[in-house]
Design a protein around this nucleic acid. Structure first.
Lengths: 224, 224
DNA sequence: TTGACCAAATCAAACGATTGAGTAAACTCG
DNA sequence: CGAGTTTACTCAATCGTTTGATTTGGTCAA
């Protein structure tokens, strides 16, 4: 029950305990007393540092986003090739996107309980955003979305923007549903620590997406 | 704020109000007083009829499931063709699955607030299942899953069961993520009542899935 | 001296649950 | 039939607990 987060300053311990508690029980289900206990701190500090529970919640989200920011920067660092090599670069960009996203989503799995809780909290927040945090969430999603849309636009220049958004929706849907419903998926497969081979799963999502996009090079051999 | 559900017996009114409140605020966020007020009933009835809040929650889920049961039966009614026509039948079965699922998911959109809340609650429950309801949820999912897996098995008999499950995961992920994250999707597209043309979206999901599955007949023309 | 932190006590509000009284229809039996 | 009883349902009032928030008084390092 008690998490093994030691050291660091009290403020950070509070935030990390909040991430764990909010992820496990939701905003209303988690109490500041429990959060404080998890951080081995006094509950009065919630008001002292964050102006109350809601402030702590927002700060917890910001804390998560700040951690993920480096991955986003890495994504954006992929060069946007123009001209003849653009197509191959866009395919690689899409592959990178899926891989980075999945590894990001699963960069936890028993290792760091705070990291795992952070992703669960993100999933919660994404599905039922707290009014105060909707803007924060959109701001976080935008760079991912723009990178993805750039790749799709390059790969299917024949499609209108609306159809491209649908493509992006399908691709992103696979990845996020997988993460958001990991609990159900594990129940269905009867394997409590299901994605034992993450790279194989990444490969599947990549293949499925490239085929779904309708890229000729992703198709298997035409029949005979 | 107050929902326009009139008449019916008090018990049903309580359940429907509970669906709305639980969907909007979560289990902990919704109070039995608010629920009772929405049903124009007394909060003591929650204990009287359902043995408490948790019982009301479970009954609300059962209420939703019972409504959806007819659609499941309709799905299962699709004949399982053997022999030469099996492939075409499986494709049709998959198409039916996607269409029925999407129409089920969106059979609300401003019409019936209770129905809309019901789907939101399902999404919530799916992502963070209450311990007491996990079994209930699985039981509800199974027929959908089996129908889907049957189609996939017929269409790709060359793939092992594990790969087929991944295919199912990708297909279902598109549909459920779309529904679960409808709020975010609408924000992204800047269109608050986004899927204005549901049939077009169904067509997209169908095409994307058939291509993603790697069916030769779903591929566009090979280049030149 | 100041700022971060602590334990403990306390506050009003909201929570889920329970009580006991009350109503009206349905049933029982002479 | 009709008096008596049961059953199903509803209500206002209240219970004890927990909630987020605040206050008090104090410790300790910078």
């Amino acid at each position: 029950m008690a998490c093994a987060l030691l050291s660091q300053d009290t403020r950070t311990r509070l935030i990390e305990s909040a991430i764990v508690q909010f992820a496990a029980h939701g905003f209303d289900g988690a109490g500041i007393r429990e959060i404080a206990k998890g951080a081995k701190a006094n509950s009065a500090l919630v008001t002292y540092h964050f102006c109350g529970k809601e402030g702590l919640y927002l700060e917890a989200l910001r804390h998560i986003f700040a951690r993920k920011a480096c991955h986003v920067a890495q994504l954006a660092a992929v060069p946007r090739v123009e001209g003849p090599g653009a197509r191959e670069a866009a395919i690689q960009g899409l592959k990178n996107h899926i891989q980075a996203f999945m590894q990001d989503l699963m960069a936890c799995n028993g290792m760091d309980p705070v990291e795992e809780a952070a992703m669960a909290l993100m999933a919660r927040e994404m599905q039922a955003p707290r009014p105060s945090s909707a803007a924060l969430l959109m701001e976080q999603i935008r760079p991912h979305l723009e990178h993805l849309m750039y790749c799709l636009r390059t790969l299917r220049p024949d499609l209108p923007e609306d159809a491209l958004l649908n493509m992006g929706l399908s691709i992103q849907g696979q990845l996020l549903y997988f993460r958001n419903s990991l609990g159900i998926v594990r129940l269905i497969r009867g394997n409590p620590n299901y994605p034992e081979d993450l790279s194989a799963l990444i490969q599947h999502f990549t293949d499925f997406s490239l085929r779904g996009l309708g890229l000729p090079e992703a198709f298997p051999q035409p029949r005979n």
